[in-house]
Design a protein around this nucleic acid. Structure first.
Lengths: 166, 166
DNA sequence: TAGACGTAGA
DNA sequence: TCTACGTCTA
């Protein structure tokens, strides 16, 4: 296999199962689970459409995950904490938006710490569908919000992981 | 050996020889050759003195290397190209300065590209002594300059590497 | 060429 | 808490 440059993949990555845990972002990149080294949204042109294929939620931006499998994810850019301007519907944000109309499944990875001084790890949470999109905040600090719904029929995440999700 | 957290080492690192080449900065960090993932100056408190133990010269900041083994290295911070303020004599800059009085040997690593589209690699150049220090530029864009002299008796760097140094 | 939910050490 | 001569893809 070519580990030097993984192909952008829609859907599950061969050999990677729900609950698989990794220590570094670069591992996700090497395996093609999520290629950006820092970015939260991986995207590519798939069949003529520019879509997102995976996202990482590690708490840098606020997000919400409910036990029903609903995930509210915040768009990229604009640095909400710093209020450095509005987010723009481009790059990853646009790609994730385009997943709604194209019904493209998105891999979701959670980054979290098991304990206060533990290092971050990244856990594969499975495939989600982007079902809704809206903006939040006033002009000058506007961010995008995406509602994702976990696709049914996948293994559940271990409860000890859900417990630690921020 | 403990690969998880290399001890700060003054002088040569066991098993690493002049001319050894590496692909990624993280390799230098793992082996304890140069621990910072991005920073150009590695420092630590050695025997009561805060000193530098290694530097990376990869061309982000200007530097000069002469065939006589003299290296002019630019301090860190202030982002000279952007002129974002004066460099400060703190952190790595201070540590490198303290090497003059303490005569602490400093490991030098060169980062360069073999070809235009080749990836950067990092080559261990051996031990240098910091022999001089001055400032350059007007207030508001002032940077530090360090003159280092290669310690005699070490293997020469391959000429094909010297050729590519920027 | 610029952006990005990284990493580790001071 | 902040910095840092990284590293990749779009």
């Amino acid at each position: 296999p070519d580990f030097t440059k993984p192909r952008p993949t829609v859907g599950n990555v061969s050999g990677v199962e729900v609950g698989d845990e990794f220590r570094y972002r670069v591992e996700l990149a090497i395996l093609g689970i999520h290629r950006p080294y820092q970015g939260g949204i991986d995207s590519h042109h798939n069949d003529g459409a520019f879509v997102a294929i995976s996202i990482v939620a590690s708490g840098v931006y606020p997000y919400e995950l409910s036990s029903s499998g609903e995930l509210i994810y915040t768009g990229s850019g604009g640095k909400p904490a710093d209020k450095e301007g509005d987010q723009k519907l481009e790059r990853g944000n646009l790609a994730l938006y385009n997943c709604i109309a194209t019904k493209t499944p998105v891999r979701v990875i959670h980054g979290f710490k098991r304990g206060k001084d533990s290092p971050s790890t990244f856990t594969y949470d499975g495939l989600y569908r982007v079902v809704d999109f809206w903006t939040k905040g006033q002009s000058g600090s506007m961010v995008f919000k995406y509602r994702l719904q976990r696709i049914p029929g996948q293994p559940k995440l271990p409860s000890h992981i859900v417990k630690f999700l921020r």
